[in-house]
Computed example of a mutant assay.
Amino acid sequence: MNTLIAFYQNIGPALSLLVFLTFLLAGAVKGVIGLGLPTIAMGLLGLAMAPAQAAALLIVPSTLTNLWQLAAGGHLLALLRRLGPMLVMIVLGTLLGSAWLGINNGPWAAQALGAALLAYSVYGLVGRGFQVPPAWEVWLGPVCGLVTGVVTAATGVFVMPAVPFLQSLGLSRDEMIQALGLSFTVSTLALAVGLAGQDALGGQALGASLLMLAPALLGMLAGQWLRQRISAALFKRCFFVGLAVLGGHLLVNG
């Protein structure tokens, strides 16, 4: 138990409250639109702590909420066969990126995070849907996986370009939700291995991350309740606008 709370004793009550509220909000966003937990967590926590520290905190909540999302639907085996090459390259790209770049405390780390958030928000706001021809999927999937892995290793954000690629495959709603859960689960686990290799994911960090599972799940349940009562399209637009502001701030000010 001492290991679980030592991290929050060290960072103080104000930052501990920020961490708690961040995961509550991130869980709620995921509950409404099916994604956004690590993106929100990295963006907001990146304002107050090093990206490596923020990434370590999201490992347990991101893994378990994505496994929850992954369990929904009956398309897992088919998706594993179809997305297997991309998922393998996500792991390879994350491990290579961790050895090459890593989420460190360098002056570029926060700017890289801001650039990733800004790129994703611009795509979410103005990107037009496109369909990948079956012949392209064979090679484009692994390429997107490799790039996603490197971006994950550098920023802790694993939505680009994996999410646009998955959205281009013509999946049904249930398949898409499960595919996102699968991609994000693999990315989170690969990121955990990369962080451990950089000595950024010890017992204290894992304990601190475990404590954030409760607000993330609470927020996710609240978001699922809220999804039935608001316009998901309007909520998603507001999400991307806020993410663009956040990403721009990190990009400019670091």
Rank of each mutant, 00 (worst) to 15 (best):
L4G: 10
A14G: 03
L18N: 07
V19W: 00
F20T: 00
F20V: 05
L21V: 06
T22I: 05
K30L: 07
I40G: 05
I40L: 09
A41V: 01
P51I: 13
A52G: 05
A54S: 06
A54H: 11
A55T: 07
W68E: 03
Q69G: 00
A72Q: 09
H75L: 03
L79C: 06
R82D: 06
M89V: 11
G97W: 13
G102W: 01
G106W: 08
P107S: 14
Q111N: 13
L113K: 11
A115W: 12
V122M: 14
V122S: 09
Y123R: 10
G124Y: 07
V126L: 15
P133V: 15
G145C: 08
L146N: 02
G149P: 08
T152W: 00
G156H: 11
F165R: 02
L166W: 06
A179M: 02
V193N: 12
V193H: 11
Q198H: 12
Q198N: 06
L201A: 05
A205E: 14
L206K: 09
L206C: 10
L210Y: 10
A216M: 04
L217I: 06
M220E: 05
R229G: 09
L234E: 12
R237S: 03
C238Y: 14
L243F: 14
A244N: 10
V245E: 00
G247W: 02
H249T: 08
V252G: 09
